[in-house]
Design a protein around this nucleic acid. Structure first.
Lengths: 183, 183
DNA sequence: GATTACATGTAAGTTGTTACATGATTAA
DNA sequence: TTAATCATGTAACAACTTACATGTAATC
């Protein structure tokens, strides 16, 4: 017997629509701008999932064609959709399978030259520092521009991204220090 | 034109075999025990991938049946396999797509009661603290038992897991503090 | 004698990625 | 006028998960 897995893409979309009605294109951008630090969806997933949600009556669709704008379909979450979202939200979160290609490569580092090992680390440090800058700027922006209740939830998640970026930078620095001495 | 994506399962297995020859079952356990903190493979992936690697001559296979043990196939990495591994190792690591179900759920937290929001956080804090304990114990064990060159690479990766677990615990504590006051 | 661990595989389904295909509107 | 952005979708493939299927050997 094959038990149904939970399709999380459905809920990430429902959650987005719990803020405001959006088109598929809006959702795509919103997810990448707003939840990008901790959740992402592939381009090809949004439209098929929206069609499914519509079929299941968890969202409704308003065709906005011919209102002077470009033709677009605006989706709203239904009462049923909100109920489904809330039911999912209270379920304890599953941990995602750990997969860091960088750490895997460095773990296999005996097959790597010192130069290449260091190159990986320096590249990662730079990336993490850039991320950190980005999230700090975003944090500042939210604190200044948004004073609604939504900002509260947003700020908590941004802080998580900041903590992780800081941990990554610290780890790179430490490892670079060790490796230049010992390897 | 559809460009070939890189199958990382192949390289995680080749990397394991770069330490010593192993059976499929060994690799499964080794990956979950040794690289579990930063890389995992599903059960159903190992055997088909081994068959593929054998076909591509990146590994060789010794049938160990009839030596008094249970029938098993022991795989070794070939020269070609080692070359392929090394080629992959120097390629800059791709960042894995961010997916934290917990953070997503908390981001949609306005659809959650204060009680349920806190329950998520307390559960996560406990999980992260357990992880931290586990990795600290592992770190100690490696420092005491392994004094080979392999330990060096292992210790770096364990430190990464420790930093992340610490960041998670700190984040949970901070967020719990804020939420009990403000939500 | 039963359970656990060792050991190898397949089947079936779900999910995710990338590229392709098409077309409208706005701004440089 | 040309490029960028807005906008919706499909096709093909790659990867992942879970359960199923089978059998041996050691241990309690």
């Amino acid at each position: 017997m094959i038990t149904k897995r939970i399709n999380k893409t459905r809920y990430s979309i429902l959650g987005a629509l719990s803020f405001e009605p959006m088109s598929g294109y809006d959702i795509k951008n919103w997810l990448s701008n707003v939840t990008g630090a901790f959740w992402s969806e592939s381009d090809g997933q949004i439209y098929p999932t929206l069609a499914q949600l519509l079929k299941d009556k968890l969202v409704s669709c308003l065709d906005d064609t011919g209102s002077g704008n470009r033709p677009r379909k605006v989706y709203s979450i239904t009462k049923e959709g909100l109920r489904a979202l809330k039911q999912w939200l209270i379920i304890p979160a599953q941990e995602s399978t750990a997969r860091s290609e960088l750490i895997l490569k460095l773990f296999y580092g005996k097959n790597l030259s010192k130069k290449d090992y260091i190159a990986h680390l320096e590249r990662q440090q730079k990336l993490s520092e850039e991320k950190l800058e980005f999230y700090l700027a975003k944090q500042k922006h939210i604190q200044e521009e948004h004073n609604s209740t939504d900002a509260f939830y947003w700020l908590q998640t941004i802080r998580s991204a900041i903590y992780h970026a800081k941990a990554d930078v610290a780890w790179c620095k430490d490892t670079l220090k060790v490796v230049t001495k010992e390897k």
